[in-house]
Nucleic acid binder design. Structure first.
Lengths: 363, 363
DNA sequence: CTGAAAGCGCTAACAG
DNA sequence: CTGTTAGCGCTTTCAG
């Protein structure tokens, strides 16, 4: 352990070549004689040489680093996206640096600065609020940026990859209504985040249109424990609804925790549609019916887009990619007889013109 | 968007000072006149200047970057550790770069190289196998390294932070045995990983000592779906055991998924002890009794250690920190009458000398 | 194909 | 306290 760091000069000296040749061997940017290559590589591995990115980047102006910024790494949705990115980036010869904003705009700004100081070749960001951070918007004019998930469309700042949130909300609402549910709670995280607003509002609209009833919208925040507390407080003061539709995997956990604490059975007493499709949702006796976002595909689309931009520049106008979420039906949504149908049944000997679904319990 | 990048010179020119002064304003390493500070800051923000780490690091030899390497970012245990690190590091003025080895030694080696090429000030690593990667062991002699979780003790390479895995296994086994369980399956991920081996072997030893029965050890791997398939295949050919003890949060998910698929009720038909204490374990009607690792404390201990080393160097011998896991009792472990006690009960009118716990069903 | 020399943006050292 | 100068390790000329 004599010298502090092994540099390209140590290698070139040992191999008896110039530093430039060593550089060319490692970067592969210029052809090098086979024999020399071998000598250089041997010397390098003998010394444990690893090129210094700082120096390389400084001189060349190029870098193979892409940055990823997400609101929360402990949220499986984001963790999965990051993991997939990293694999894709690595396959294309890029290294990924990751930062988490812990859902706080101030932290987001600071993490963003930290990432930008690396002068990455590109960046994929899931903003923590609706506002694209100023620094990011500015940077997006020179550096490729792809915005994912938490974005209000249309977005003029950068390319985006999102799901069709209105459709997701409507599909879930329809499923609930078709199963006879009328008194429905929509568990939002924060309505100020536009994808959430879209999911929830579109579900509410559908419910109102189909049943004439107003859904109850509850904001449970982006943290499980906080959301559990809020929902518990609400439940203490209200009747158990027919069904709950979660708008986020975190709200899903909050709602389920509360029901567990209150020993409210799913789907016997209340139906539930979860958001996102995590492993634990399958690991239960009554599997959760859930809106599944195509996480991997989202990550892939974002990476494709970023790679394209890194190759072709940011001069052409931003593109918005919208993917579709699907409903995975398992067993957390039960069949209810809606009041109107039940009244009709009691009032007349003939079956009322209720939906086929609502008839089922009579068989 | 005329110039490509704003450099320190642009700022110094606009502010009418030297580059060194701008540097001192931002690094705070030398005092600068108030007025000048202000002028510099104004010029900088006006230009959108962000110091270039590559250049800074190259010249100064210092860096405020620490690297974190984990086997899997989608595993909540690791994700939580990373998140906590990042918060702590940030509070101390460090930036974190993260990489995931996806539980594959080859990827681990490549990610490790990528991280080391940043020349970080220190590194926290959760190796994916028992073997500390060669490159890391070598690096640990000059750069502070803290190894977490997946480490075989004693470790001569670097400081370590782990839990007392033998104790964790024994505590869980005792809980099961005390509740009258005899036919017990130990769900390992891979016995070749020494913490797992310790947890599982120590549980097996305890069970053998207390009941004279050999526990069944099953290796379910480090992936939920794979583990589910393996356990399902096993269940098709064997009786449902009295209880299952998981050694990992991933094996927990595999086991639960299988039980759900087979509609085997917990704890009526089989008891279960989970590993790690994730939010979803509380979000069920029968909450999971679980071994809880003190995740946050592990992260904090590792960070403290790393910070100390970054301050004081790596010359003093490695230190091993061992923390304690605890058993969180919820409702997934039921009461069984062990055969021996049951036989004794049937054979004699007097209560057999069974444990108090085993008597409970008779009340 | 290889080597010598210059310089990326920044900060250490020293002079003022 | 501020400016000047040199050079970190690499890659890029450009000459051989």
């Amino acid at each position: 352990m004599s010298k502090d760091r092994i540099s390209i000069k140590d290698v070139s000296a040992l191999a008896g070549v110039s530093a430039a040749t060593v550089s060319n061997v490692f970067s592969g940017r210029k052809p090098v004689n086979r024999d020399l290559q071998e000598r250089v590589r041997k010397a390098a591995s003998q010394l444990g040489y690893l090129p210094d990115r700082a120096a390389s980047q400084l001189r060349s102006g190029r870098t193979n680093v892409v940055a990823v910024l997400v609101p929360d790494l402990t949220d499986t949705f984001f963790a999965t996206i990051v993991t997939r990115f990293e694999a894709l980036a690595q396959a294309d010869g890029y290294d990924v640096i990751v930062a988490s904003s812990r859902d706080t705009p101030a932290i987001e700004a600071s993490r963003l600065e930290a990432l930008l100081a690396f002068r990455p070749a590109g960046m994929i960001a899931v903003p923590c609020s609706n506002e694209v951070p100023e620094a990011l918007a500015a940077e997006a004019q020179r550096m490729p940026v792809v915005l994912v998930d938490r974005v209000a469309l249309p977005c003029t700042v950068a390319d985006t990859v999102t799901i069709d949130n209105r459709d997701a909300g409507a599909v879930a609402a329809r499923h609930l209504v078709e199963h006879g549910h009328r008194d429905i709670v929509l568990a939002a995280s924060r309505m100020s985040m536009s994808p959430i607003e879209e999911r929830v509002q579109s579900a509410a609209d559908h419910i109102l249109r189909e049943t004439g009833r107003h859904a109850t919208i509850l904001e449970l925040g982006t943290n499980v424990d906080e959301g559990t507390a809020i929902f518990a407080r609400w439940l203490e003061r209200h009747d158990v609804p027919d069904a709950v539709l979660a708008s986020t995997n975190v709200t899903t956990l909050s709602v389920l925790s509360t029901f567990a604490a209150f020993r409210i059975a799913i789907p016997d007493r209340v139906s539930m549609i979860a958001f996102d499709d995590d492993a634990w949702m399958r690991a239960r006796n009554t599997g959760l019916t859930a809106i599944r976002q195509p996480v991997e595909e989202i990550a892939e689309a974002a990476w494709d887009r970023l790679r394209l931009r890194m190759r072709e520049g940011v001069s052409t106008p931003p593109v918005s990619i919208v993917m579709n979420a699907g409903l995975v039906v398992r067993s957390s949504v039960g069949q209810r007889i809606p009041e109107t149908a039940a009244l009709a049944l009691r009032a007349s000997p003939r079956p009322a013109p209720a939906s086929a679904a609502a008839d089922e319990p009579l068989h």
